[in-house]
Amino acid sequence: MQSQMIKTSSSRPLVAAVCMLAILLPLFVSDFRSFQVTQILVYAIAVLGLNLLTGYNGQISLGHGAFFALGAYVAAILMDKAGVPYWATIPVVAAVCFVVGFIFGLPALRLAGHYLALATFSLALATPQLLKHPALEKWTGGVQGIFLSKPQPPFGLAMSQDRWLYWFVLLHVVVLFVCAANLLRGPVGRAIRAIRDQPLAAETAGIDNSRFKTTVFGISAMYTGIAGALSAIVLQFVSPDSFTMFLSIYFLVGVVVGGVGSIWGAFLGAAFILIVPNLSSEVSKSATGMLYAMVLLLLIWRMPNGLWSGVLWMWRAATRRPA
């Protein structure tokens, strides 16, 4: 619904303006700001991935940090141990995470509501420990993690590495978001939502619920995994303690803030989960958690469709007035 809203002719100039701004942004801001926006873009992909599963398909995951970690580690190990160029890790990560997500989706089929949340929450709790395991230390670097080198712009282009990374990530954002928008607009999207709202009716209407649910799980894990890989490339570092269960919870915060079942809200959600800690950590380390908690409660209570729906509402009100 939101995506159609954006595509209406009246908002087309706006979309074009936003795209131009996004592309040109690094030219106007410092490398550090570019780097920060790059991080937001990375998180937006992860939030979108979780939203596909939880918001659109109704499968609640509290453990998407694990898929983010998987993507990050696969990319890091490929670069560090196999010397694979950074850009070539993305397709591999996509494939690996899709398969792992798909496989995780199989038992998830049998878990209704709470139990899936519980199983994924458990996964999130166990992730750091799994990553530290000595048997994997040869590849994962154990508690130390893996340090990577910063990628150089291609073809000897004269630009800073941060700017290049921004455009590299932006390219993925565009491809992944356009794919998601198209997927959700069509009959597949209707089926995905039907399974969430009316599982029995969907089944009787000839939708293969199981196949759809496991596939969505796979796609969702793939999106979040790609975000993890991009994050490893951007930060040049992975370590087990970056992937605690709080990461998974933050993704959920991003989904709720951006709007459950809203594609473009992912940017808002991602910005929220990255900017708020930056601002509030000046007050105290605990302020972030308290703010998240309060915002979550308020949103779920008063604005269950997230901030993005509020933005859309204002946009509609503003464009309607002149008529």
């Binding site: 109704g58 509290l62 958690g289 308290m290 998240y292 908690a293």
Partner: peptide, 20 residues
Amino acid sequence: LSVVVVFIALFLGFNAVAGW
């Protein structure tokens, strides 16, 4: 989903307030 989010909010809230 709303109920789960409320539990998560409580989780974050208690954790943060205790730290604070």
